[in-house]
Write a protein that binds this DNA or RNA. Structure first.
Lengths: 330, 330
DNA sequence: CCGTGGTCTGCATACGTATGCTTGTCAAGC
DNA sequence: GCTTGACAAGCATACGTATGCAGACCACGG
């Protein structure tokens, strides 16, 4: 592809290839006149330095991989954006590596294509982080964490958020409370569910086993689970969801079945993604500061890229945000 | 990063470096016994071939860049997914290149990091495609097209879709029809708006100049425009939006102002992204088969990657999908 | 006039893998 | 027994850029 190389530029400018390399990077060891001649030649040939060559020579790519599940879940683009911004401000390009099945081979991440890795959707037992650690690839977990906290990580305080929701629905007066939870092998799914139970317990409440559903984090799963729950003999008066997308599914099911929200049903989400604040949705949920999370994660990664050993486990406090999908039981 | 190279493997296996290269790629010119010895050595050292080295040597990256605006607009992840799938099936990895401002420097795309490029958010006057053409970088436009059709492209038949919407709202009986359109420098924004006018004209209708808003393709813009429109002395009875996200904004504004949809206001979108079919939204819109679009775009790209000259301009027919946000005027 | 120091440029080579060509080995065929 | 050929592996080198080191050149001071 790169028909024109630094040798071509050198020939045209009447200098050597190394001089071209130095001149175009504006190193001080090249005289102003030579620089100008080289720049002119490069311009004339529309020369673009070949990135592979540079990367091979410097053993640095200025690229960071962000591993995420399907981007069609709107949560991930919103996490991605702050990560991308922070990385860009520090001179790194972001490459999104989609990990559809959650069993990505670690090899792709350690073949020299990236200077570092951000894992956003690690499963609790995933070995990818361990493998990266073994190969000394700078990396950080953002959003989800592992059971064995070997790698640095940043996450929301999901247990605390879950507990806050529990206390909130209890205080509203609800007693028949359902929980639509995310997968148990994700730290977000499990921690929020555990937190919810703790919050309810503080008010002397428990979740009836029949009112618990554990499903993947997507709209249709939330919708199906909610349909089941609402068609029980004694349907719940409140449904707490493991994330916002599940809550959208709950709202969809309620709409389909003609159940009024919040009159006859309270729905609470978790994440506070952009859609949730749209008046057409107006979801009561738990706000997560993904900007802060992304910035912090990138800080931890940069520290490693600069050669330091890093082992922090940051936890950010979420906050309940009250909108239009909650109320006292009918 | 790659502490262990093919030379290390060669030394351990007692063979030469080229033999390692051939053995691990399972070339026939290596004896089975040698292959096994090399594989064992590679396994023992946890050897991962350095991608930069391979890329430099073969002058091929097996990577394709997909250029898109911010992924927080849910349309793009949905276009991305079929593209990614089709590329993956053909052995190419997808790299998302985010083009926040729409003025991406073409250099990044032509520095040898990618074998090909898919442009999804090109502005009408963009020179990026031309630059790629000049440098003989295989590329294709998917979704949006250019005024000068120099590069191969695939897009929905946006004028036809717009016309269908125009005829539809006219047939419903609406007369005060508003149009919230996307930016004029995008082919989607302009073509859909032109199509709408054509469809209405067929029914002897015109859009009052005061009922036209041209805004960026995002929720808040749609919401703000709709608030303005609904607070006029004679508000529109139907609002046609340049895409679904704008329509969500319209629904938000209607909700805020207590305007009933579809009782007092008809809202129509364009794209039929996943959210639109959620019962909680249930938007009447124009369906675009992004799977087909993505597959076709990748086909055109692959033809170029295999060395062919390609110059097709494919257009796919969209279809109106009637859901819950339309009705006759009050 | 020679030596010194500083400035600029070029030479040689490294980075890790892939591949054309050559060499070596061995068995079969005449 | 020598040739032929097939097969297996190694040698040399290419890909494009970056960098340590050496050398050239110039000006200046003694």
């Amino acid at each position: 592809m790169p028909k024109v190389t630094s040798f071509d530029v050198a020939r045209l400018a009447g200098v050597s290839q190394p001089t071209v390399s130095r001149a175009l990077r504006d190193l001080p060891s090249v005289s102003p006149q030579t620089k100008e001649r080289v720049r002119a030649a490069a311009r004339q040939l529309a020369y673009i330095p070949h990135d592979q060559g540079r990367a091979l020579s410097t053993r640095t790519t200025r690229r960071v991989a962000v591993v995420s599940e399907a981007l069609t879940n709107p949560f991930y683009p919103q996490l991605l954006e702050p990560l991308r911004g922070a990385l860009e401000r520090n001179g790194y390009a972001t490459v999104v590596v989609t990990d559809g099945d959650g069993d990505l081979a670690g090899e792709v991440l350690a073949d020299g294509s990236f200077d570092g890795v951000v894992l956003t959707t690690a499963r609790r037992g995933s070995t990818v982080a361990r493998e990266l650690a073994r190969r000394a690839v700078p990396h950080v977990l953002a959003n989800r964490v592992l059971d064995e906290p070997e790698s640095p990580s940043v996450a929301m305080d999901n247990p605390a958020g879950g507990a806050a929701v529990g206390r909130f629905v209890a205080t509203l007066g609800h007693r028949r409370i359902a929980s639509i939870e995310g997968p148990d092998d994700t730290s977000t799914g499990r921690d929020r569910a555990l937190g919810l139970r703790r919050g309810l317990r503080e008010h002397g409440l428990r979740i009836h086993a029949g009112l618990v559903r554990q499903v993947p984090f997507d709209h249709d799963s939330g919708r199906a689970a909610t349909r089941e729950l609402l068609q029980r003999d004694e349907p719940p008066t409140a449904i707490v969801c493991g994330n916002d997308v599940l809550a959208f599914g709950a709202l969809s099911a309620a709409r389909e079945l003609g159940v009024d929200v919040p009159g006859a049903l309270t729905v609470v989400g978790f994440d506070d993604i952009a859609l949730s604040s749209w008046p057409v949705i107006n979801l009561t949920t738990v706000h997560c500061d993904l900007d802060a999370l992304g910035r912090r994660a990138v800080d931890l990664l940069l520290a490693q890229l600069r050669g330091g050993r890093v082992a922090g486990h940051d936890v950010l406090a979420p906050t309940l945000v009250l909108r239009g999908t909650h109320g006292p039981p009918a």
